[in-house]
Design a protein around this nucleic acid. Structure first.
Length: 308
DNA sequence: CGCCTTTGACCTGCGC
DNA sequence: GCGCAGGTCAAAGGCG
């Protein structure tokens, strides 16, 4: 692959979790999703995905979201499990939304491998992720460090706003121009102390209506309840906290943005931006349908949270 | 005043 | 070794 195409789709370099991991992300038992990995609950979709992950994933999307995986409207079924196979190219070019999860073995970035100088700087600053960084530096090879990288989850959302409200508070700490793209990439860090979750937000070069968000790490705290303009979102999560980066919520919210009239909306409020919020009527209709019930079965933790 | 964004500089890893 | 690109820092300034 040429450098150009590699850079253009650096997003794909997030090496993906297996579908098993993907579907076992905090959807089932968020509270057990500690820093050392996920502990699957008794309820898991993993079995469904073992034989034919791609087909199973398509099936899930079709059943839960009422969309055809081949549709150019909503999801692409590709969930690249391990390889750096150039799937994103196809996805970005032809479909607006895609879900991908990463286990953080990307070669593209290596935070935590700091020089002594910059580490001293950070020790003074006292960022949330500092302890992590320092501990990583002690007694571990680079390979081991790579393996211990925080899990990543990335997804694409059709949205007019870059920074989607997800219930957490984020502070922007950087912005970089992306090669071969006119749109910059923004870097955000969770503002909660000792929470080193980060996210990157960039707009797809090929489809400017698509925002690519990548979460890295897992929140170690409950959702803030006094978010500006997103109290509804916070309320949605308040019973527990989702990790990493509220993946499943975002995943399905993405679908809501891209599935038009049949939007899946389970009470999410898109802050004051508003432009991507789903139609409340669609919400009602959805809840009455079998799709809602199916989703409820598949991702029980999401729906448990909704009950007062 | 506290929190946030902006932005240029700096650091690091990777490919050649 | 060098250059490039991604990622991060931190000072400065804005805003409520």
């Amino acid at each position: 692959m040429s450098n150009e195409s590699k850079d253009l789709y650096s997003y794909q370099y997030l090496s993906s979790l297996s579908l098993y991991e993907l579907m076992n992300l905090p959807t089932s038992t968020p509270s057990s999703y500690g820093n050392n990995g996920f502990v699957p609950s008794s309820y898991s979709l993993a079995d469904c995905f073992q034989s034919s992950p791609g087909a199973a994933y398509d099936s899930l999307l079709h059943k839960t979201l009422g969309v055809s995986p081949s549709s150019s409207e909503v999801f692409n079924s590709l969930v690249d499990q391990e390889s750096k196979h150039d799937v994103t190219n196809d996805v970005i070019g032809e479909t607006p939304t895609r879900v991908s999860a990463s286990s953080s073995s990307s070669e593209a970035d290596h935070p935590g491998e700091d020089s002594g100088k910059s580490q001293r700087k950070r020790e003074l600053v006292g960022y949330g992720g500092e302890e992590n960084r320092i501990s990583k530096k002690v007694g571990k090879t680079k390979k081991e460090e790579k393996k211990q990288r925080e899990p990543r989850v990335s997804f694409m959302t059709k949205s007019e706003v870059d920074h989607l409200e997800d219930g957490y508070r984020w502070r922007k700490y950087g912005q970089k121009a992306v090669k071969n793209s006119i749109y910059p990439r923004s870097y955000y860090r969770c503002t909660t102390q000792r929470c080193n979750v980060k996210k990157r937000v960039e707009r797809s070069f090929q489809d400017p209506t698509v925002v690519i968000t990548t979460y890295e790490g897992q929140h170690n705290h409950p959702l803030p309840t006094n978010l500006r303009g997103s109290s509804a979102a916070a309320a949605m999560y308040s019973a527990d906290f989702m990790t990493p980066g509220s993946f499943t919520h975002d995943m399905f919210r993405s679908s809501a943005y891209t599935s038009g009239g049949s939007a899946l909306d389970y009470g999410y409020e898109q802050s004051s931006y508003g432009s991507v919020n789903a139609n409340p009527n669609a919400h009602q209709e959805y809840r009455q349908g079998g799709e809602y019930e199916l989703l409820k079965e598949i991702f029980p933790s999401i729906f448990f949270k909704q009950e007062p």
